[in-house]
Structure formats: C-alpha cells, structure tokens
C-alpha cells in the first residue's frame, strides 16, 4: 500500500474568484485516519485557507457531512483507507448553496424545521412535579425518528429537494413524525395543517436514497410514506365525514 493518497478538494472562495476549482493535496495514508483527519492535516500543515465544518469527531454533532467520491457521508466516520489508492474527491453537500469551500448554507433547513413545530404540543402541561408515563414500547414507536443529527446527508441525496426547494424534506418530516408518534404529544393536526401545502412530499417516489445515506438509521423515507398515508386518510375522512373528528 502506498503511504500517501491524493485528495481533490473543491475550493470556492467568493472573495477571490467567482468560479470553483479543484485543488489536489497529497496527505499521509494512515490506517486510523478518517477523511476529516486528512482535511485537518491539510489545514494545519499544507494550506490554512481550506474551510470546512467539524466539531465532535464522533459522528454525533452532524457538522462534517460532505460528498466523498460523489456520495454524502460524515467525514469523521469515513476511513481514508477505504478510498485507497485514490484520488479521493471531496465536495460540499449537493443541493445546497455553497458559502465557501466545503461549507454549505443550511439556513433553509432551520426554517423548515421550525415550520413542522418540533416540540411537544398539549392543551395543558402536567404539574411540574409529575412525569408523563411512557412505556418502553411507546418510546420505541418514535425513537428511531428522534435519532436525527441534522447532518443534511439525506437532503444531499434527495432527488426531489434538488428540483423542488420548497419541499420540507426528509429530516424535517421525520422530526414531525417523531413528535406525532410520541404519546405525550397532541399536535398531530397542527403539524398536518402546516404541511398541507407541501407539494414536494407528493413527488417523493420512495426511491429511499435518504434512508440509504442516513448514518443514524432514521429512515426518513418510512416517515414520509407514513405521512402520506395519514394525510390521505385524513383527507378522505374529512370529505366523507365532515363532522368527523380526528386527533
């Protein structure tokens, strides 16, 4: 095995140039290194101007998502060795505007997250000295959807989001379901109303790319599927039984 590997890194610095370019860096190929370690090596030793986000280096903060050889991954969880002999192409996450180098603008997601009301909605809050009961199986119902680290890999993989930027998107929908399915919550209807104008959801064809790339097994595709079924029944019920009350 060679002891170095070449990284071809997407560079875009709007202050200096209007067009992005690829820049090659040769870095040591260490068995223990992940792509993020290689980027840190570049930043510390070769080129201090390279910009990217990272923090925890343990796959939980969600900062370090990038396209590596065309696939969205967490770079702190992707061993360099896997890409040997290289070269390895590193680009910012697809479907997002690029701020600079490997840094994308994800403010759109923050707006969408708020739109789905990701908090417990109840008519009344219980007394502050009493817990709500929730059995392990009730917890298990929504738990997978609560594991989302907001890493944006699913948005980078989503063909609909690429075409229809209004689409609220896989992670935000999974988080809406996370609350809908929590037995402590009563906000199902409010969230459904907030999403009723989302056309993107109906264009989702369940290719399941989002679930395939999710590093936390959240299965946003499953959440979307569920949502569509629920919305459809809700619509039918309202049509047939206008007096019908659903949660």
């Amino acid at each position: 095995m060679a002891d170095t590997i070449t990284l071809e890194v997407f560079r875009y610095r709007p202050d200096e140039a209007s067009e992005p370019v690829f820049q090659s860096y040769e870095v040591p190929l260490h068995k223990d290194w992940v792509i993020l370690d290689a980027l840190n090596y570049i930043k510390d030793q070769l080129d201090g101007t390279l910009s990217y986000r990272w923090s925890c280096r343990m796959g939980v903060c969600g900062s370090c998502g990038m396209m590596v050889n065309g696939k969205p991954v967490l770079t702190c969880a992707a061993f360099v060795e896997k890409y040997a002999p290289g070269p390895v192409r590193i680009e910012p996450l697809e479907n997002f505007p690029v701020v600079r180098d490997l840094i994308i603008d994800m403010s759109d997601f923050l707006h969408k997250l708020k739109q789905v009301k990701p908090w417990i909605i109840r008519e009344e809050e219980e007394a502050p000295d009493k817990e709500y009961l929730q059995t392990p199986s009730q917890l298990a119902d929504y738990k997978p959807y609560s594991m989302c680290i907001n890493c944006m890999l699913c948005y980078a993989a989503c063909p609909v989001y690429g075409l229809e930027p209004d689409f609220v998107g896989p992670a935000a929908l999974a988080l809406a379901q996370r609350y809908n399915m929590d037995n402590r919550d009563q906000g199902n209807r409010q969230r459904m109303e907030a999403l009723s104008h989302d056309h993107g959801m109906w264009q989702c064809t369940f290719v399941g790319d989002c679930s395939a790339v999710c590093p936390k097994n959240v299965d946003p595709a499953g959440a979307i599927q569920r949502y569509k079924v629920e919305t459809a029944t809700h619509w039918w019920k309202n049509l047939l039984l206008p007096w019908g009350k659903d949660k």
Partner: peptide
C-alpha cells in the same frame, strides 16, 4: 434537579423507561 429533569421530560426528552412507564 428533579423538577428541571421533569421539565425536560415534559418537553419531550426520550428518557429510557421502566416497564410501568416511569423514568
């Protein structure tokens, strides 16, 4: 501490549970 933790519970924190539904 206990009342703060219960607030977290009311805000939806997915605490691990006992069979009877208590934290």
């Amino acid at each position: 501490a206990p009342q703060e933790m219960i607030r977290m519970e009311h805000w939806g924190c997915p605490w691990s549970r006992e069979e009877n539904g208590k934290v």
